[in-house]
Design a protein around this nucleic acid. Sequence first.
DNA 1: GGTAGACCTGGACGC
DNA 2: GCGTCCAGGTCTACC
Length: 315
Amino acid sequence: MTTTLNIQAPKDFHLARDVCSYGYFLLAPNHWDVDKQHMLRVLEFEAGPSLCVIDQPKDRVRARFDRSLDRSEQSSAKTQITRMLCLDTPHEEIKAFHKVDPRWKKSGAGRLFRSPTLFEDVIKTVTSCNVTWPSTVNMNRRLCEVCGRKSPSGVPSFPRAQKLARTRVGTLRGRCRVGYRDQRIIDLAKLFSKGQIDEHWLENTATDDEVFKFLVTLPGIGPYAAGNIMQLMGRYSRLALDTESIRHAKAVLNMTGTDNQLMKRLKAHYEPFGDHKFRSYWFELWEFYQSKAGPATTWRRDATATMFTSANLSK
DNA sequence: GGTAGACCTGGACGC
DNA sequence: GCGTCCAGGTCTACC
């Protein structure tokens, strides 16, 4: 027996566009099937993981699982899929974004793909710091292979916080190749698994400033990572500036100056977009990537591992 | 508050 | 095939 769930989607939701909108859709255990234009990934539940295939027949999102889910698992699955696909972002919010930045009105872009849990987004962000994209791809693949649980179909999940909290530093460094991030990942996993991260406060009630100040106190999280985690929470009022931003400033925005000057100019440049500034910044960057590599809906995970190297992007 | 150097991995490049 | 260089954000020590 298997389970199929149907989730009502906002009228402006488009699966291919909204999944292939942020780099994490290329990181394990996410898998975008280019030929079938649907998404596969394993979701985690207390009783064990399950592989699901997500597609969009007409106005609903459909998720088909490789085993039967009980009532509470079905509820959890809906919550996880809603977070991943930003199905709870109302049409009005996307319209407000297009009002301040009409460049994306025609394509309808506005939602940014993310993970089913905040924990996975935090760890994925740590694996994206101080490395080139191919290493981030490898780290996430190995984390799933080494520390994930296998679904009935034999596909591994993203490891749960409880599991990573118990994993040895040597395993993370030696087998998952996360380098010096080993202890930081374990410390973060302990904070999540012990309930010391107030996710409701972070995602709903705290101000943006409060969230940022809290995030930079976490191990392995600096200003860039905090800004990125904030956008993954649906808080787009801050930029997550890194060396990619510097390249973008020079190559696309034709800015000049030292790195520090460029950072200041980038902040000033996106200030008019207010609470949507990360979206405006990101879709500019995403458009540039697609001009180099074709539509994101045609990107295959393994090929993009070498596509997005600084050497290739600066060509 | 600002800055320099260490932390690791893997791609690029020269031989 | 091997060795070297370099990119990448965070953290710590130091001024």
